[in-house]
Computed example of a mutant assay.
Amino acid sequence: MTDDPKILVPFDHDEAIPIRIMARLAGISEQTARNWCAEHGLGRRIAGRWWGSRVALAMFRDGDKAALNAYHAGQRDGRVADYFARVRAQKLKNL
């Protein structure tokens, strides 16, 4: 078993966002978004391209380290599920 954080595992198109979108949502540069992905586990490289997690970004911006740690551990229930529901609701609202 690997100890790698379970970021965007499994890959979900509702959760994943390109770095340029993540940067815009967070009001930061694309380089800072890539740095946050690497340093704080907010995204990962897939086929050479960085993808951010809407869910991990929401947890990070809320300062919810417990939820972010649970997400990294692969948990997708409880508090983490609440973030998934919130992110999906926001996405639907913006359609």
Rank of each mutant, 00 (worst) to 15 (best):
D3T: 15
D3P: 09
L8F: 09
L8N: 14
V9W: 00
P10W: 08
F11P: 07
F11Q: 13
D12Q: 03
H13V: 15
H13M: 13
D14N: 13
E15P: 10
E15Q: 13
I17Q: 15
P18E: 11
P18S: 03
I19T: 15
I19F: 03
I21H: 01
A23T: 13
A23N: 08
A23Y: 12
A23H: 03
R24I: 08
R24K: 12
A26F: 02
G27A: 04
G27H: 06
I28N: 07
S29K: 03
E30S: 15
T32H: 01
A33D: 01
R34D: 04
W36M: 13
C37S: 12
C37R: 01
A38I: 10
H40L: 07
H40M: 08
H40Y: 14
G41M: 11
L42S: 05
I46K: 08
I46N: 14
I46P: 06
G48D: 10
R49E: 14
S53Q: 14
A56S: 11
A56F: 11
L57C: 01
A58M: 11
A58V: 01
M59D: 06
F60C: 08
F60K: 02
R61P: 00
R61E: 04
G63M: 12
G63H: 09
K65P: 01
A66G: 08
A67Q: 05
L68D: 00
L68G: 03
N69K: 13
N69F: 07
A70L: 15
Y71S: 12
Y71C: 13
Q75K: 08
Q75W: 06
R76G: 05
D77E: 12
D77S: 07
G78W: 08
V80R: 08
A81Q: 06
D82N: 04
F84M: 05
F84K: 11
A85C: 02
A85W: 00
V87G: 00
V87R: 00
R88Y: 06
R88I: 09
A89L: 03
A89Q: 05
A89M: 01
Q90T: 06
L92M: 09
L92V: 03
L92N: 10
K93F: 10
L95C: 01
L95G: 03
